[in-house]
């Protein structure tokens, strides 16, 4: 019988650390534990996922958690991105935790399970730790409290251990411990039945020879990466003030991703489906004609 937690966030928000803090805390309580991040090709700002499992007996599961008991979402904007996979298995989950000001509008908008709990970690993290995106400890504390199987003492020891491993200075660790206590004591504990693993039913398919064209990792639709929308990585959004723009073309030349094109008159057009929000264009614009708008609250 195992409890399965899946953490979602963006690269840089500490989702992996959150999964490790919960893992360490459960370990200190005496549970059998597994935790693991998924390493893909994605980078800062891109959706990332990490897992923690714990239980009283040996855990006979590995890898991706498709049917989590608890889904922990560090960044509410991920709900809008189906590729982030936040919703996978939500119908069988006992609860969802959202780092957001309020659950209700999101529950309605995304048809989330009614047992969705929201709490504004971003605001408190900003206030106590000083960095809005340093969500790992808040997410871990919320998780520990909600599942109800990890006492505060073990949570705090785990926070200390994991942050020391990341070489955080003592001052920052102390602030994070304060944050952990506050979050832990602000949230309720829910009933989480430990249960056996579930699997979506599947049918077996046989793989026969399908010809030489299909058999090698080649791509004939060159340039098709355009279909991959990297705009969801964006934490800030560059916006052009056309009144100030002198049409120098620097932003077009220097955009690493080629997400800026020039219109007939030479004005830059930003492709928001793909702009990753590096904000290089804003920094280099000689006349400050590019402004920044925050897109992800928890950053």
């Amino acid at each position: 019988m195992v409890l399965r937690i899946r953490f979602h966030g963006r690269g840089g928000q500490g989702v992996k650390t959150a999964s490790r803090i919960v893992g360490t805390a459960a370990f200190l309580v005496g549970y059998q534990v597994q935790d693991s991040p998924v390493y893909g090709a994605e980078r800062r700002g891109a959706a990332v996922v990490a897992f923690t499992r714990f239980g009283e007996e040996a855990i006979l599961e590995r890898g991706v958690i498709e049917h989590p008991d608890l889904i922990v979402v560090g960044d509410e904007t991920l709900l809008a991105n189906p590729a982030a996979g936040v919703m996978v298995g939500q119908e069988t989950a006992t609860a969802i935790f959202l780092n957001a000001e309020s659950a209700q509008p999101l529950v309605e908008q995304y048809a989330l399970s009614p047992s969705t709990i929201a709490w504004d970690l971003t605001r408190r993290t900003q206030a106590i730790v000083g960095v809005a995106s340093a969500l790992s400890v808040g997410l871990a504390a919320a998780t520990a409290r909600l599942v109800g199987l990890i006492p505060e003492a073990q949570l705090l020891s785990a926070v200390r251990r994991e942050l020391m491993e990341l070489h955080l200075p003592e001052g920052a660790i102390a602030k994070n411990l304060d944050l952990a206590s506050e979050v832990f004591n602000a949230l309720p504990s829910l009933e989480f039945p430990l249960r056996d693993g579930q699997e979506t039913p599947q049918k077996i398919s046989s793989v026969l020879y399908e010809g030489l064209l299909r058999g090698s990792p080649s791509i004939l639709n060159t340039g098709n990466a355009e279909q991959r929308q990297t705009g969801a990585w964006r934490l800030e959004r560059p916006e052009v003030n056309f009144e100030q723009c002198t049409r120098c073309g620097l932003c077009f030349l220097q955009c690493p991703d080629g997400a800026i094109t020039l219109d007939q008159n030479g004005y830059p057009i930003i492709d928001y489906d793909h702009c990753k929000g590096c904000m290089l264009c804003q920094t280099l614009c000689p006349v400050q004609a590019i402004l920044s708008k925050q897109e992800v609250r928890s950053w």
Binding site: G40, V207, L212, G215, S216, P217, S218, I219, T222
Partner: peptide, 25 residues
């Protein structure tokens, strides 16, 4: 006819597919 060959594959379903196609070949 531009083509990308030997492309990195991170999805394990299609990785398995390509390796098994080689086996079939």
């Amino acid at each position: 006819q531009p083509m990308a060959q030997g492309v990195a594959v991170l999805d394990s379903s299609i990785y398995s597919y390509f390796r098994y196609q080689l086996h079939r070949a």
